[in-house]
């Protein structure tokens, strides 16, 4: 396999895609490295299942490789196209398996992967509180309707503008903002109990 040439890293996504369409694996790898975290975490936060996120990340990039020739930069940016594909694959998989959100308990492995192991060992309480908050946040996200969860993930976690989300989801911006507002109110409802228990435990 080709190694990544430093020059490749300075190229735009669209330039890299042109090379991918010509079956250039180095450009493909550069694109993968650029977006693996974003796409993996998009799927993870949508599904709540790490192994599923791993599989769907793989499927997304496999599809990008085979559909590279159909990418038209005049129709939109690569990033929007990639997110649309990832989201469609995820939604399709979720509907196939007939589950809305596979909520998993946070394991010790997840806990260490999140970098929390660096927390001061002299503060075990703070460490436990962090695990609790994280659990609650995941649970609160799992309670949201998929169309609300999707807008929270894309706007807050992926830092996409509402105009970009509108392109990805093919939904008017006004509707997205309305969903975002509603999702925030529901999250507030779900997380308020957590705040109270957290305050009493302190």
């Amino acid at each position: 396999m080709e190694t990544i040439n430093p020059n490749i890293l300075t190229r735009s996504d669209e330039e890299l895609m042109q090379h991918v369409a010509e079956r250039n694996t180095a450009s493909f790898k550069a694109l993968y490295k650029r977006y693996e975290l974003a796409i993996f975490n998009l799927i993870l936060k949508y599904t709540g299942d790490k192994s599923l996120a791993q599989d769907l990340l793989q499927e997304t990039f496999t599809r990008i490789w085979f559909a590279a020739h159909s990418f038209n930069q005049e129709k939109g940016r690569f990033k929007t196209w990639l997110f649309t594909i990832a989201l469609n694959i995820t939604k399709s998989e979720m509907s196939k398996k007939q589950y809305s959100y596979f909520y998993q308990e946070i394991s010790e492995k997840d806990f260490t992967e999140a970098g929390l192991e660096e927390m001061d060992e002299k503060m075990p309480d703070a460490r436990m509180v962090n695990i609790e908050i994280r659990k609650h946040v995941r649970f609160a996200l799992s309670r949201l309707e998929p169309f609300m969860r999707e807008v929270i993930i894309l706007r807050h976690y992926q830092q996409l503008k509402f105009s970009e989300i509108a392109q990805i989801t093919n939904t008017p911006e006004g509707t997205l903002k309305s969903r975002f507002h509603r999702a925030i109110l529901l999250l507030k409802e779900h997380l308020t109990g957590m705040d109270k228990s957290y305050a009493t435990s302190k």
Binding site: F40, N41, L44, K50, Q54, G115, V137, I152
Partner: peptide, 13 residues
């Protein structure tokens, strides 16, 4: 609320 959401940190594949 968005501050709370930040506790769901990114993971790596």
């Amino acid at each position: 609320i968005t501050g709370q959401l930040d506790h769901f940190v990114n993971q790596t594949p």
